[in-house]
Amino acid sequence: MRAAHLHACGEPPRAVDVADPVPGDGQALVAVTAAPITPLDLLCASGTSYFGEPATPYVPGVQGVGTVLESTSYAVGTRVWFPTSAGMAPGDGAMAERAVVADDELVPLTGSVDDVHLAALGLSAIAAWTALTLSGGLTPGDRVLVLGSSGIVGRVGLQAARLHGAAAVFGAALEPGAGDEATALGADGFVQLRRDEDVASLARRMRDVVGEVDLVLDPLCGVPASAALLCLAPRGRLVNLGGSAGDAATFSSAHLRSGARRVIGYTNNDLSAAERHAAMAAIEEHAAAGRLSVPYEVFPLDRADEAWAHQQRGEVRGRAVVAP
């Protein structure tokens, strides 16, 4: 079969011929139809992640969509979404014509959404959805600020907040044109982030737009998170699920304690299988109804190296998806 092999950390994977994988006990064999290139894929393949340097060569792809070829839990032909530990632990991932996956990791799909679009949503959509609802405790009437609203997590965050009855939703991002995109996704206001701006200045500009908010979805950390913390209403929550703007944020102890405000860390790895299934089911349902969408570009497996390079340089609008 054809698979994308990453031969050395820091290099893009390249399509090669390899032997078909053979599932073991408790494993399923999946014919892969779509595998997105995510920030986690890029981080793991750089050799600098907190998981350590991966053994090479390996097939990247921390998630995928496909159909079951062999399984003890699902019928042949069942359409599924699945995660993998590629780059985080020994073993291959989804960027191949076939993948071996733990049976209990498979999430059955209805098939109501195009495989490539669902792959583009994938773990990023699950993260945004559950960070808001499970970790952040989003309730109808909350005012929500989504940092990094131009990314996949942020785009889903804007839409998910509205779907869950938020009274007001605000976006914040660095990229030019991100304000128009946030408005098109239902944002009530937008904060244009600037490079090298200090916390106090950004906090003043944020408050002018958002006033106070009950919940912040934060995939950025750094200065944007520090400023957003100063916009939290009493009993407000900031849920952090990334650090693309910096590894550390600052907060005032007095501000945090005086309003019983909370800072919460989020990771998909903490989700139970039932929570992951429920999130994906909701995401698929809303995507099928046109209420949830993200942009993506499709690349054939033999152009995996090109897709990887484009995603790494930020030249893809949304998510690059490899379609074996």
Score class of each variant (00 low, 15 high):
137 G>E: 12
137 G>N: 15
138 L>H: 09
138 L>S: 11
138 L>M: 12
139 T>C: 10
140 P>Y: 04
140 P>A: 04
141 G>V: 12
141 G>P: 09
141 G>C: 14
143 R>L: 02
144 V>P: 00
144 V>A: 04
144 V>I: 12
146 V>N: 02
147 L>Q: 13
148 G>R: 08
148 G>W: 08
148 G>Y: 06
149 S>K: 08
149 S>F: 13
150 S>F: 12
151 G>L: 03
151 G>F: 05
153 V>T: 13
153 V>G: 11
153 V>H: 08
154 G>W: 09
154 G>E: 11
156 V>Y: 07
157 G>H: 00
157 G>P: 02
158 L>P: 03
158 L>V: 07
160 A>M: 02
161 A>H: 00
163 L>W: 11
164 H>S: 05
164 H>T: 01
165 G>L: 11
165 G>C: 10
166 A>Q: 02
167 A>G: 15
167 A>W: 12
168 A>V: 10
169 V>F: 09
170 F>G: 00
170 F>M: 07
170 F>P: 00
171 G>I: 01
171 G>E: 06
171 G>L: 00
171 G>M: 01
172 A>R: 09
173 A>N: 06
173 A>E: 06
173 A>S: 14
173 A>I: 02
174 L>V: 13
174 L>T: 14
174 L>Q: 13
174 L>W: 13
175 E>S: 14
175 E>H: 06
176 P>V: 13
177 G>Y: 01
177 G>R: 03
177 G>L: 04
178 A>V: 05
179 G>E: 11
179 G>Y: 09
179 G>F: 09
180 D>W: 02
180 D>I: 09
181 E>G: 13
181 E>I: 15
181 E>L: 10
182 A>P: 08
182 A>Q: 05
183 T>Y: 07
184 A>W: 07
184 A>Y: 04
185 L>I: 08
187 A>Q: 04
188 D>E: 06
190 F>H: 10
190 F>N: 05
190 F>L: 01
191 V>D: 11
191 V>L: 07
192 Q>F: 09
192 Q>I: 13
192 Q>S: 15
193 L>T: 15
193 L>Q: 12
193 L>H: 07
193 L>A: 12
194 R>F: 09
195 R>F: 02
196 D>G: 10
198 D>Q: 04
198 D>M: 08
198 D>L: 05
198 D>K: 07
199 V>L: 02
199 V>F: 05
200 A>I: 12
201 S>K: 10
202 L>V: 12
202 L>M: 11
202 L>Y: 06
204 R>V: 12
205 R>K: 14
206 M>G: 01
206 M>R: 01
207 R>G: 00
207 R>A: 14
209 V>Q: 06
210 V>E: 03
210 V>M: 06
211 G>S: 14
211 G>C: 13
212 E>Q: 15
212 E>D: 13
212 E>N: 10
212 E>W: 05
213 V>I: 08
213 V>F: 04
214 D>R: 12
214 D>S: 11
214 D>A: 09
215 L>P: 04
216 V>W: 01
216 V>M: 01
216 V>F: 00
218 D>F: 01
218 D>V: 01
218 D>S: 01
218 D>C: 07
220 L>D: 04
221 C>M: 14
221 C>L: 11
